[in-house]
């Protein structure tokens, strides 16, 4: 991957934000993040420009790339890889990054959802939760946030 000078990555412009919008639109339709080539095609820009946008957005934590690549790992609340949290909304199935994001997906989409989640201490135990008419329905589960908010970006995968 061609890494730009740090100064370039610290800048951001309307086109970069348009790439962000396109990424999220793609995810909601296709249930996965676009590749950089797909993003370039959507915006009608050269691949290199889309790649720069990915890197700038990553720099600002607007999305998160796999280190050293142009592959989108997270565009919160959506995960780019399979996780223990599958969220079904309007006939589509998404992966959420965590227990917070499994509720973040219906919140972002303003829609009801059926969620299949796994407990952290019992990975083989699946549970179904629902969001319906603005309310969440579960089984008295609790959500644990192991790190203080200040440290969430230290290691977002672990958080």
């Amino acid at each position: 991957m061609n890494m730009r000078a740090t100064g370039d990555l610290d800048q951001i412009d309307d086109l970069d934000w348009s790439v962000r919008t396109a990424v999220y639109s793609f995810i909601t339709e296709q249930m996965r993040p676009p590749t950089v080539d797909e993003a370039a095609a959507l915006l009608g820009v050269p691949r290199e420009r889309a790649a720069l946008a990915f890197q700038r957005l990553n720099q600002r934590h607007a999305l998160f790339l796999e280190p050293g690549t142009l592959t989108i790992r997270m565009a919160h609340p959506f995960s780019g890889i399979p996780t223990p949290f599958t969220v079904q909304v309007n006939g589509r199935a998404y992966f959420a990054n965590c227990a917070w994001d499994m509720l973040g997906i219906p919140a972002a989409l303003h829609a009801d959802a059926e969620i299949e989640a796994h407990y952290a201490d019992a990975a083989n135990t699946a549970v179904t939760l629902t969001v319906r008419d603005g309310e969440v329905h579960g089984h008295d589960e609790v959500v644990h946030f192991p790190l203080p908010f200040q440290r969430w970006y230290d290691d977002l995968v672990r958080t």
Partner: peptide
């Protein structure tokens, strides 16, 4: 051992945090 929220609290937080995430003018 960190903080714990109930499912209802987490849903409330998720709504306030993510309700505008898909807006084209969202900037973090």
């Amino acid at each position: 051992r960190g903080e714990t929220l109930t499912l209802a609290q987490t849903w409330e937080l998720a709504q306030r945090w993510y309700h505008d995430r898909l807006r084209p003018d969202f900037r973090g």
